[in-house]
Simulated scan of single mutants.
Amino acid sequence: MKLRPTVIALVALAGCSTVSITSEWKDPAWRGPPASSVLVVGVARSDTTRRLFEDTFVGQLKAAGIRAAASYDSIPPGEGGSAKLGDLVKSTGSQAVLVTRVQRVEDRINVSPGPGGPYGGGFYGWYGGAWASTPEVTQTTLVTLETSVWDARADKLVWTVNTRGVATTDIPKATETLANTLIPKLKADGVLR
């Protein structure tokens, strides 16, 4: 099985504390059968992040009754790993390859105005009103991930979703959240058994 170099390109993988599916696609011509074994590939610049992601997602797939393997032991980071990917798919007996990568990271700043302006009554009344009307400013970092599933038997992209969530540094917890969102969807869509 071959993946395009753009899919294997290294990017910083970030996790999300909660995720929602923002877009999805399934190949309407793909008839299956659903996969019962999956090779998990996390695309990340950090080898530690990749290992945490792959190990956690593999554990979640196994808990859902799917045979799964991580790619990091056999596939080195970077584009050079694509040459070994086909051999790894065969040696693990994987019927599908699940690839997750960061698509976008964006900072959002929200300014909530206070409940009104400064009030009269001299300086003391003005000061109390000014304090009460100070806006609240919050910053949130949102991460959009793209997760794709390739049918290794047909060497074909069959399913992809984009998810969005608030960034976190707890990669295992974020990966569990992502897996708990995607695995039931993959089963419902007939991609996994």
Rank of each mutant, 00 (worst) to 15 (best):
P34L: 02
V58G: 05
Y72Q: 04
R31T: 12
G81I: 09
S37R: 15
P77H: 05
A64K: 02
G42L: 13
P33Q: 06
T56N: 07
I75R: 01
D47Q: 14
S46P: 01
D55L: 04
V58D: 01
R67T: 08
D55S: 14
S82A: 07
V41A: 06
A63V: 06
S82C: 00
A35P: 11
K62G: 13
Y72S: 12
P76T: 04
F53V: 07
F57I: 03
V41D: 01
D55C: 06
L39I: 10
A44Q: 07
F53Q: 03
G78I: 03
V40W: 02
G78W: 04
L61S: 05
R67K: 13
R45N: 15
R45V: 12
G59D: 10
P77T: 07
A70N: 00
D55P: 04
V40D: 02
P77Y: 02
W30Y: 11
P76I: 01
G65Y: 04
G42D: 13
Q60K: 15
P33L: 03
R45I: 11
L61T: 02
E79T: 10
Y72K: 10
A68H: 02
S74F: 14
A69C: 11
S46H: 06
Y72W: 15
A63E: 13
T48A: 13
A70W: 00
V58R: 12
V43H: 10
Q60V: 10
R50Y: 03
A29P: 05
P34K: 09
G59T: 12
V43I: 15
T56D: 03
I66T: 13
R50G: 02
F57V: 00
A69L: 07
V38R: 02
I66N: 11
V58K: 09
R45Q: 15
R45C: 09
W30H: 14
G78A: 08
D55H: 07
F57T: 00
T56G: 08
F53P: 02
D73C: 05
G78Q: 12
G80K: 10
S46R: 02
P76C: 04
G32L: 13
G81E: 09
G59F: 08
L61D: 00
V58A: 11
S36N: 13
G59A: 15
D55M: 03
S74R: 14
V40T: 10
G59K: 11
P77W: 00
V43P: 03
T49S: 14
I66D: 03
R45A: 13
I75F: 04
S37L: 12
F57L: 11
T56V: 08
A64N: 04
G42F: 07
P33Y: 00
L52Q: 15
W30I: 10
G65M: 10
L52W: 08
R45Y: 12
V38I: 05
T49M: 05
A64E: 00
V41E: 01
A70G: 07
S71D: 08
A68M: 02
G59P: 06
V41L: 15
A69V: 07
A69N: 12
A29I: 08
R67L: 02
F53K: 05
A69Y: 12
L52R: 11
G42V: 13
V58Q: 08
I66A: 09
A70D: 00
S36P: 02
T56P: 06
F57M: 11
P77D: 01
E54D: 09
A35W: 04
I66F: 07
V40Y: 03
A29F: 08
E54V: 10
R31I: 09
G42S: 14
A68T: 04
V38Q: 06
G80D: 11
S46E: 05
Q60E: 15
L52M: 12
